[in-house]
Every structure is written in structure tokens, then in C-alpha cells.
């Protein structure tokens, strides 16, 4: 009963936030509300027993995506033009589609019904047999990394491809920056954000440690490569935010991070090829070791490691390219301003 109450409250709040997003003209507030929306969704996922998903959504929806929005808004302008034409047609389309969909839900099994078709098809096998077949107590990890490993491989490739896309669209060739300039920026930031910097410096090791814990604890509790990747990346974002992009670029070498993204996928694929060479089918971990369960454990460990590497480095690549683009635009703007002043 209380669970239902929490569920209904969270969903109603979500609708409220979504309507506010639709009505706001200030994109900064929209991005902020989108972050709140992500956090609410994550809380809802916890209430729905989806702890692994909640993890990811909290890091991605409330953290990374909000940050990306902010960087983009600094480049593209903060306010939205008022809508000139009447949105009646759009409202009509939306209402018709919505009522059709609601009509469709009338045939659906009620929320939480144990005899719904989805719970009778493959889920019983996962719940009852996975302990003998895979030997991992976190069922989400077992399904993600073993039963549906091929599917996950595809997803990781999509993430990697999106990273390459961002790189192709936004990357700028840069010269090696002058040490003195970096020092100057660093000092001024140090004065401005003293408290934030000190606290962040204390927290970042713990965030990185937590990411590693999530990575390797995925077999026994909520966690795994996707979650660990985004948490790891968010620690690096935090560092870049407070210590400057140039300093962060020195800590995280850009060519190495690109290499790591590729190596992650390669590791994943290699596990599949090795299992084929050992006489099994692609990504069949049973043949990786003489004992099938040990083979499963080894396979899951390796591919989760690959997923973690790729996700973390692609997120870092995406953020650094957005932020680097923004920095370049600002520099160009400043130079133009200086030129204009000289001309006057």
C-alpha cells in the first residue's frame, strides 16, 4: 500500500515537472528541471525494484545529461523564441495519439499482476535456473552479461559509435597550451572556487573507488560496467569543472582515452572469438574454463570490464569535446571583441 502511494506520488510529480518543462522559455531552467526529472525517474526505479537501472539513471539523467545541456546552452543561447503560430494542430495530434494509446492500455494486465504474459515467458528460466547455469546472484548481471551478451555487445558498439560521431562533429585540432597560461587560469579559479575545490579534491578519490566497487561488485549486488562507467566519468567531469579543462586534459590524455574506448570493445569481441576458438559459440563462456561456472565468471568479469572501459571513456570523450568546443568559441569571440575594439 505504501509502495503504491510512493509510486503514485512520484509519477504525479514527474508529470508536473514535464509540464513545467514544456511551458518554460528559459532553457537554463529547462535543463535544471530535466535534471530533477532524471532524479525523480531514478527514485521511481528504486520503488519499482530496478536498483541497477536506478543507479544508471541517477548518474546519467541527473548528472551527465544536465551537464551536457548546460555546456550546449552556453554555446547556443539561453532563451527560446516564443512560439509564433498557434500550437492547436500539434495539440490535436497529441490528444488523438494519446487517447488511442490510453485505449490500448485498457487491454493490458494490471500493474504488478504476477500472471502477466511478460512474467510467464523467459523470466522463470532466468530466476530459477540461472544459479546453476551462470552462478551469479545478481540476475540483472547474469542476463546482461551472459544470456543476452550479444545484445549488450550491440549496445556497447552503439555507444562507441555515438562517441565517434561526437568526435567527428566537434573535435578541434589544438596546439599544446602554454604552461604559464594554464597556471594563470588555475590560480584565478583557485581563488574563486576555493571551498568547492578542496571538497572536490577530497571526494574524487572516493567517487573513483566507488566506481571500481560498482564495477567488480556487479555479480553480488547492483552494479556492472555501464553503471561503473558513468560514475567513473562523472568523477572526471567534476575534476574538469573545477580545475579547468586544460588541467584535466593533462591528467587524462586524449589519445589514450580514445584508445581505451576502442580497447574496451575489442576486449568484449575477443572474449567472443576466444570462446569460438575453444569450440563454443560466440560469447558462450562455458568453454572458457574447464569448469562451466568458472568460465561464466571469467567471461562476465572480462566483458563487464570492457563495457566499463568503453562507456567511461566515451562519456569523457563526449564531455571534453563539448567543453573544448565551447572554450574555442569563447576564445574566438574574445579575439573578435579585441579586434573590434582596436578597429574602433
Amino acid at each position: 500500500m505504501i509502495g503504491l502511494l510512493i509510486d503514485i506520488t512520484l509519477l504525479t510529480l514527474l508529470v508536473g515537472v514535464a509540464i513545467a518543462i514544456a511551458r518554460m522559455k528559459d532553457l537554463f531552467a529547462v535543463a535544471m528541471l530535466a535534471g530533477i526529472y532524471g532524479l525523480l525517474t531514478a527514485s521511481f526505479f528504486v520503488a519499482m525494484d530496478a536498483v541497477d537501472v536506478a543507479f544508471t539513471e541517477a548518474a546519467v539523467g541527473a548528472g551527465i545529461s544536465t551537464l551536457l545541456m548546460f555546456v550546449v546552452i552556453t554555446m547556443t543561447g539561453r532563451s527560446e523564441d516564443p512560439v509564433r503560430h498557434k500550437p492547436l494542430l500539434a495539440l490535436l495530434v497529441v490528444t488523438i495519439t494519446g487517447s488511442l494509446l490510453i485505449f490500448g492500455t485498457l487491454d493490458m494486465p494490471y500493474f504488478g499482476a504476477p500472471d502477466a504474459p511478460i512474467h510467464t515467458h523467459v523470466a522463470p528460466r532466468y530466476i530459477n535456473d540461472s544459479m546453476q547455469e551462470v552462478g551469479v546472484i545478481n540476475l540483472v548481471t547474469a542476463v546482461l552479461a551472459s544470456y543476452r551478451a550479444f545484445d549488450t555487445f550491440g549496445e556497447v558498439v552503439v555507444v562507441f559509435t555515438a562517441g565517434i560521431g561526437v568526435l567527428a562533429l566537434l573535435s578541434v585540432a589544438r596546439r599544446r597550451e602554454d604552461d604559464a597560461v594554464i597556471e594563470l587560469v588555475n590560480d584565478s579559479m583557485h581563488e574563486q572556487h576555493l571551498i568547492l575545490r578542496i571538497v572536490t579534491k577530497m571526494l574524487i578519490p572516493f567517487i573513483l573507488l566507488f566506481a571500481l566497487y560498482v564495477q567488480f561488485h556487479g555479480d553480488f549486488g547492483p552494479g556492472g560496467g555501464f553503471q561503473a562507467g558513468v560514475i567513473f566519468a562523472s568523477a572526471i567531469f567534476l575534476y574538469a569543472l573545477l580545475f579547468g579543462l586544460s588541467t584535466a586534459r593533462r591528467v587524462i590524455n586524449q589519445s589514450i582515452i580514445r584508445l581505451v574506448a576502442a580497447v574496451g570493445i575489442l576486449l568484449y569481441g575477443c572474449v567472443g572469438v576466444v570462446s569460438m576458438l575453444n569450440g563454443g559459440s560466440f560469447l558462450d563462456y562455458n568453454v572458457l574454463s574447464s569448469d562451466p561456472i568458472a568460465g561464466q565468471h571469467l567471461g562476465i568479469l572480462l566483458i563487464e570490464w570492457g563495457v566499463g572501459c568503453t562507456v567511461a571513456s566515451v562519456m569523457v570523450i563526449i564531455f571534453f569535446n563539448f567543453a573544448g568546443r565551447q572554450e574555442d568559441n569563447q576564445k574566438a569571440q574574445n579575439e573578435e571583441d579585441i579586434d573590434a575594439n582596436r578597429a574602433l
Binding site: 551527465i64 511478460i118 542476463v143 552503439v158 562517441g163 555501464f226 558513468v230
Partner: peptide, 19 residues
């Protein structure tokens, strides 16, 4: 657990495509 797996990967793919 199956929908959890699908959505877990979809969230990370979602942020990449949004980016």
C-alpha cells in the same frame, strides 16, 4: 530482470545519442 537489462543499456545508449 529482463526489462531491467534492456533499460539499463538503453539509458546509456540514450545519453550517447542525445549527446
Amino acid at each position: 530482470p529482463l526489462p531491467h537489462v534492456l533499460i539499463l543499456t538503453a539509458i546509456v545508449v540514450g545519453i550517447s545519442t542525445t549527446a
